[in-house]
Amino acid sequence: MAGVTSINLVEHALLVSIQDDITDTEILELQDRLSTKISENRVDGVILDISALEIVDTFVGRVIAQLAGISRLLAADTYVVGMRPTVAVTLVELGMYLPEIRTALSLTHALAQLRRV
């Protein structure tokens, strides 16, 4: 059941698929891996796929914001895709609006947005 969060190059974007049971140590490692990958590859954008996440609590919400922050600092556009509707409703109730994060409906949409820039 424990999946590994993967980073794959899709067109000129890095696709990060975050697993539901990701732990604190894996998150630190992921931040590291992501920043290395961004600087190694010539990427236009980073797409965080959170469709595997059954919940997003304040902790995971903060992690998503941090990952987006890192990739933006390294000059890559960032999109979050695949947020489940139930997760969106719950985030609003938590009072987490993730204002700095751009969401896209799907991977296809996010890639289309990135091609435009």
Binding site: E54, T86, V89
Partner: peptide
């Protein structure tokens, strides 16, 4: 329901 599960699990 899916919403009830997500809310309570969160």
């Amino acid at each position: 329901t899916a919403l009830s599960v997500t809310r309570f699990a969160t």
